[in-house]
């Protein structure tokens, strides 16, 4: 009989184990979210991460080893972005009609995001390299990382900031906009797409298809706008 250590060393070398673990952790997270009727705090990503992180830690698995398996899931971030074309296409007449409110909300949301994060961070006395890493945090990761690098920030730190921003957005959007009595699904989706990129969009898609379509558009538009305005806004705070 082969002993456990031998099976483990075989499995831990290939991508199968951690790919399976990623899907299993998400299945648990999604089951919890469903059971809680998609309550905002019961976020499937946060649960999956909370399940996986201690498993990696307990088994002494380095992130690089984990990622060898998880990369197949990670890779699909590209194709899912292309897939956002579908809700956009289906809502194109409504999107055209909402051009003016969208443009106003894009500029307002994007500027508020960069100005407020820098103002709060500077209020706490954080240094210029941290400010540069924070400025583009509302944009989707590849854009935010590129902008941060150009401004002298840390790409790794920016990636972390971007993900935490997305998770915060996905958790707060529903109670926050209920509190503000915003009932327009276009406004609800668009604002979370601008402020919390893909993770916010994923939440919007699970709540309402109109919100999902407008969130995808908000994310795409803010990717472009952030690349332009984040450097300008950062200059005001240095």
């Amino acid at each position: 009989m082969t002993d456990f250590a031998e099976i483990w060393s075989y499995l831990s070398r290939g991508p199968l184990l951690w790919l399976t673990a990623t899907l299993a952790a998400y299945a648990i997270g999604d089951a919890c979210a469903r059971a809680a009727n998609r309550a905002p705090l019961v976020n499937p990503v946060l649960i999956a991460v909370t399940v996986l992180a201690p498993v990696l830690w307990l088994t002494g698995t380095p992130y690089a080893t984990y990622f060898e398996g998880a990369q197949f899931v990670h890779f699909l971030l590209g194709p899912v972005t292309i897939s956002l074309a579908l809700p956009l296409c289906e809502n194109l007449p409504r999107i055209r009609r909402a051009a003016l409110p969208m443009l106003a909300a894009l500029v307002a949301g994007s500027v508020t995001s960069a100005v407020s994060v820098l103002a709060i961070a500077r209020g706490f006395g954080l240094g210029p390299d941290l400010l540069a890493s924070l400025a583009p945090k509302a944009a989707t990761a590849p854009v935010a990382i590129g902008v941060s690098e150009r401004l002298g920030g840390s790409p790794t730190l920016t990636a972390v900031m971007v993900l935490i921003t997305g998770a915060i957005g996905a958790v707060v959007v529903t109670p926050l906009l209920n509190l503000l009595r915003i009932k327009d699904w276009r406004a609800r989706g668009f604002s979370v797409g601008v402020a919390a990129h893909g993770i916010g969009t994923a939440r919007a898609l699970q709540v309402n298809p109109t919100a999902g379509a407008f969130a995808g558009l908000g994310m795409a538009l803010n990717a472009v706008l952030t690349a332009v305005i984040a450097p300008l806004i950062l200059r005001l705070f240095l």
Partner: peptide, 10 residues
């Protein structure tokens, strides 16, 4: 779509 953010989240 949420699933796809799990690897980066970890």
């Amino acid at each position: 779509m949420s699933l796809l953010f799990v690897p980066a989240g970890v």
